[in-house]
Structure formats: structure tokens, C-alpha cells
Design a protein around this nucleic acid. Structure first.
Lengths: 210, 210
DNA sequence: AATGACTTGTCAACTTTTTTAACAATCTTT
DNA sequence: AAAGATTGTTAAAAAAGTTGACAAGTCATT
């Protein structure tokens, strides 16, 4: 096992590996070689073996990989088995949709609570999660120490809110606002979902096709 | 102006340039140099000039760039001024949230219509867009020829639906299902929004911090 | 037990991409 | 007209990503 820094490209491929292995697992496939997995995923066997080698040795010469085992290993690498606790800040349409539909547990997260400023929403319950008032946010986070926050709030409050949450111990943001958040605090991570950007990219490709 | 293929990295930076320029424009800033823009964005002046050079010459020696002009140029490059027509297929929570909140016009798209299978939704109107039945999808697309489809449907119907829509002339997919769509037809583009993947990536970083 | 067919983990080479630095050309300002 | 500023472009440098090759080890069969 190499001990180099794991490159971003590899990290971003991990969820994809997991997706395919989960699929194989659910279909009852017991073993798979890097070759056949590569065929399925449209990448080379060499790349799969190299990617996996960043994290350990999970296969066996002459046999390949045990699907269930490799799936579990990748789940572990991704921290899916840790059940990180998470809060949702902003329960408007998007926050509501996530709360209602998204399978956080499957990604290894447990939804602790949700918060919104609107009195109409406060007190309502979606999928066993009760929406609390924003005024309770600070004390709640201090007491319960969730580690990740989903931000589905208006743009203008995003950065100050993030600063406050970082102060309170939040270390990861799943950021749906179209603002680029930043902080001087180390070991805080942002995953920015810039909807607009992806649609603009699509617009570029459509406009320049042919 | 170079005539090489524009790299993906550059294309993905374009929306970000646009966002910053739009902001400057709204603040009434008239001119900006690659140097000060680079400072704002946290990248080198050199990279900005190199990126822009893929598309033309938009600045002036000794002066820099006119903000309004450069903003308009990038808007043009991204096709924002073309007003591509778009349909939304699947008006469940996510489709509904997009329809209600997302500013498609700002990204250069015009929402033609939305479709859903549920009789409860068909006939209702959101922001001037009436939700039609899925049974009308085919004839509608044939007649009105939208170019892009937003897919917010269940996973299992995503690929066959995409195939059908490609047949009918759709050339771009803003795909919110967690399936990797593909086609043999050339000049069809997919922007896959894999929510889960980004959250898993965040989970990885949280788990491995420090 | 021996043989042959497979398949891994790793190394190093290779390729591609991305970034940076440098500078002639030329515009703005005074 | 001179001084200062800033571009577009080139080429070098650095970084990142990918691939091919193979020793070493495992499995299946006889």
C-alpha cells in the first residue's frame, strides 16, 4: 500500500465505485475481477487497481475481489459506517425536498434536526424530523454537536451563518447556496452544489455542438 | 486567439467568471484588470488571460477589461443570450422546487413546460408553467421542439425515457437521477447532478480530517 | 503434487493537462 | 511625447492522471 496523498480524482471516483459495487452486491454477484469491473464502468482495470491501492489491498491474486467485502471496505473508506450527524438549515422548497426524499442514511448520515426562520414551518415534522426555529440553532448545535450542515438558505445569509456554525463546531457544509463559502479555520470542508454552473455548462455545450 | 480545443477545466471555470463579473457589473464597477480579478477570485492573472484567450480578445493593453463588455462576451460564450427552450420531466418534490425557485432565465433557459405522471399534479400551474400529463410528452416535444430536458424522475425510468427524448430531438439533459445516462447518438450532452456522490465525498473528508 | 490459467499490487514510463513566468506590443494618462 | 499599465501569446515548468508490464501469489484441474 502506497502512502501518498490521495488525489482528488481518486476521491471523486470512490462514490462511483461504491455505486457499482452496491449494485453488484444487490444482484448477488459474489466476486469480480478488476478487468470485468473496468468493462462495466468503462475504465481500465489498471486504474481500478491503482485507485484501490491508495487505501489497502482488498483483492486476491487469481481470484479478484469479493464484492461484499470490497463494497464494505469502500463504505468504510467513505465513512458510510460512521453515521455522521447532520442538520439542515433552511427548510424551504429545496430543504423540504431533501428532507422528504433524500436517503441520507444510505450516504452514512443521520439527520438530527432541521431549522427554518418561517413560523409557518417551525413545529412541523417531515419524516420524523421536526423543524425548529432558527433562534434555537445555536443552543441546539452547542448541545448536540452535529458535524455537518446542509445549507439551503438565501445567499446573503450564507457566509455569516457558515462562520457562526464553524464556531459552533460544524466541520462540513453541503452548500446549496450559490455563494462560494470560505473560512480560515482548518479542516473545514465545503461541498458546493452550484446548480447554475452545471446548467450553464450544459448551455455552453448545447450552443457549441456540431 | 488560439484555435485549440477548449479544455474541460476552462469550460467549468466559465460560469465562475460569469458569476464574478455579474457581481462586479451589478456593483457598478466599470473596468477591471486580470490582476485584480485574479485577486478577487483567488487565481492568477495569467490563468484568467489564458482562459479568455481561448475565445477571443476582450481586453485592452494598459486598460484591462470593460466589465459590462466582458460579462456580455462570456454570457454569449455560454449561450445565455440564446434562450434555449427546456422541459421539466417529473414534477415531484425536486422538480417542483426547481420550478418554483430556480431562475432558469438567468442561465439562459426558458421553461416551456413540465410533465408528471400523477393525476393530482397534472393541470396545476407553477410560476406560469402548467404541468402536463406524461402521455402528452411525446406529441408536445415533437411539436414544440425543446432542446433540453430536466430529469427529475425515478431511477428506473431514466434511461428509457432519455432514449425516447433523444429520439424526439432533445440534445441536453440536466439529470438529477442517480443513474449514469448514456447514448450512442452524437452531440447529446448530459450534466449529471449526483447528489449522493458529493455528500459521500464530504463524508470522506470529514472522516479523514486532521 | 504439479501444471496452467488467472489476477493482483506495484513500479515506472508515458501522456496529458494545467499552471506559471516572461515579454513584446500597445493602449491610457498626463 | 513619455511614463506607466496591462494585454495576448509563447514556451517552459510543474503537476496530475493514465497505462502497460510483470513478479508473485491463488485457484482449479488433473
Amino acid at each position: 500500500m502506497k502512502k501518498q496523498k490521495v488525489s482528488d480524482a481518486v476521491i471523486h471516483r470512490l462514490p462511483r465505485y461504491y455505486r457499482y459495487l452496491d449494485d453488484l452486491f444487490n444482484k448477488g454477484v459474489v466476486r469480480i475481477s478488476s478487468n470485468s469491473l473496468g468493462d462495466k464502468m468503462g475504465i481500465t482495470a489498471s486504474q481500478i487497481r491503482q485507485d484501490l491501492s491508495c487505501f489497502g489491498e482488498f483483492g486476491q491474486q487469481g481470484y479478484g475481489y469479493n464484492v461484499a467485502e470490497l463494497r464494505a471496505e469502500i463504505a468504510h473508506i467513505l465513512g458510510i459506517d460512521l453515521g455522521h450527524r447532520l442538520i439542515i438549515v433552511g427548510a424551504g422548497h429545496l430543504g423540504h425536498a431533501l428532507l422528504q426524499n433524500f436517503d441520507f442514511a444510505k450516504a452514512g448520515f443521520q439527520v438530527d434536526s432541521a431549522f427554518d426562520i418561517s413560523p409557518d414551518l417551525v413545529g412541523t415534522t417531515i419524516r420524523d424530523v421536526t423543524i425548529r426555529s432558527m433562534t434555537e440553532l445555536e443552543s441546539y448545535v452547542e448541545l448536540n454537536r452535529p458535524i455537518v450542515a446542509v445549507l439551503t438558505v438565501p445567499q446573503n445569509v450564507a457566509q455569516p451563518l457558515a462562520d457562526k456554525l464553524i464556531d459552533l463546531g460544524i466541520r462540513g457544509f453541503w452548500n446549496f447556496t450559490n455563494v462560494e463559502l470560505s473560512t480560515a479555520v482548518p479542516d473545514v470542508f465545503f461541498e458546493n452544489i452550484h446548480f447554475v454552473d452545471t446548467l450553464l455548462t450544459l448551455g455552453y455545450r448545447i450552443s457549441h455542438r456540431g
